[in-house]
């Protein structure tokens, strides 16, 4: 067994693969999470995020490769790992017909501890749901359920938190609040692995792995992923956006073009300054009005799209 405190890593995945019938859910996935790091797995449904969580939480065996959590092997040391992790599955997994406070007491009892003993760790989050402590978990709103689930995952003071899509289907306000909570937990030196399909949440992580179809496309800090984007990216808008996207796609000099909110983001095949002028001239001829076009810094979603193509 590895000495727990000598490794700087709390999660270590080496060439992990998993197949379900004909579907390759994970293809040789390797990455490591440092102690105290907030690490994001970013990718759409089907990327393999949940499979990875199941393997790391010792609920499923990998076909190939090996993984360690807090210095312990996921197969040999599964009993010990289960005491040290807090796992929040993607689907709401609390008892719907137990109240908020019953759920919390139940999970504390499972780990042979009490809510009082660890109250300091969950206080910030729990006070927000305390007014509803008598309410059944199934009757809470989406954001509230997530807060309760996080409290239950924390109640035994885990060393590593595994959070599978905690913000999916949750509104923008609750999502922000949830990430603020994660930041505060990180300050308590808890290592956090969190997955999300929302690309805008990537920048809130220390490092991220971009995942697609069972593979890791890139592991970096959000800043580095953006710096590595090699093309020059432009934002373009006109008064008639629906027509604009069709017109722009006709142009040979345009390499890629995707809608991003109120703008199109586009790259050119070569010499971007000349190409940009050609495009603007063409749009003028096509009768587009209020044309705005300027270079921009790419977002994580731009980078993801580029890596996907």
């Amino acid at each position: 067994m590895i000495e727990n405190d000598k490794t700087p890593w709390d999660i270590n995945c080496r060439c992990v693969s998993k197949r379900y019938g004909s579907v390759q859910a994970l293809s040789s996935v390797s990455f490591s999470v440092r102690k105290g790091e907030l690490f994001g797995l970013i990718g759409p449904d089907g990327a393999g995020k949940t499979t990875l969580f199941r393997i790391l939480s010792t609920l499923m065996l990998a076909d190939e490769g090996s993984a360690e959590v807090n210095g312990l092997h996921v197969v040999k040391d599964y009993v010990e790992i289960r005491k040290r992790i807090g796992y929040m599955p993607g689907r709401f997994s609390l008892y719907q017909d137990l109240s908020v406070e019953e759920n919390l007491n139940f999970f504390a009892a499972l780990f042979a501890t009490t809510v009082e003993e660890n109250y300091d760790l969950i206080r910030d989050i729990y006070v927000q749901i305390e007014p509803f402590r008598k309410r059944r978990a199934g009757k809470l709103s989406g954001g509230m359920k997530q807060k309760l689930a996080l409290c239950c995952a924390l109640i035994h003071r885990p060393v590593v938190l595994l959070l599978d899509e905690p913000t999916t289907g949750v509104d923008v306000v609750s999502r922000r609040e949830f990430w603020d909570m994660l930041k505060r937990l990180k300050e308590q030196n808890i290592s956090i692995l969190v997955s999300t399909p929302y690309m805008d949440e990537a920048r809130l992580c220390d490092r991220i792995a971009l995942m697609q179809s069972g593979r890791i496309l890139s592991v970096e800090t959000p800043q580095h992923i953006i710096e590595k984007y090699s093309d020059k990216l432009y934002a373009l808008r006109t008064a008639d956006m629906a027509r604009l996207i069709c017109d722009v796609q006709q142009m040979d000099c345009v390499e890629s073009c995707f809608a991003f909110g109120e703008y199109l983001h586009l790259t050119f095949s070569d010499d971007d300054q000349a190409a940009c002028l050609v495009l603007l001239d063409y749009l003028k001829k096509k009768g587009h009005q209020d044309v705005v076009c300027h270079p921009i810094v790419p977002s994580i979603e731009d980078c993801f799209i580029k890596l996907m193509r």
Partner: peptide, 15 residues
């Protein structure tokens, strides 16, 4: 919520 969890390229094709 037709596009929840859908990848960024497919999300745009959906629109």
């Amino acid at each position: 919520e037709p596009t929840g969890g859908v990848d960024p390229i497919t999300r745009r094709q959906f629109w």
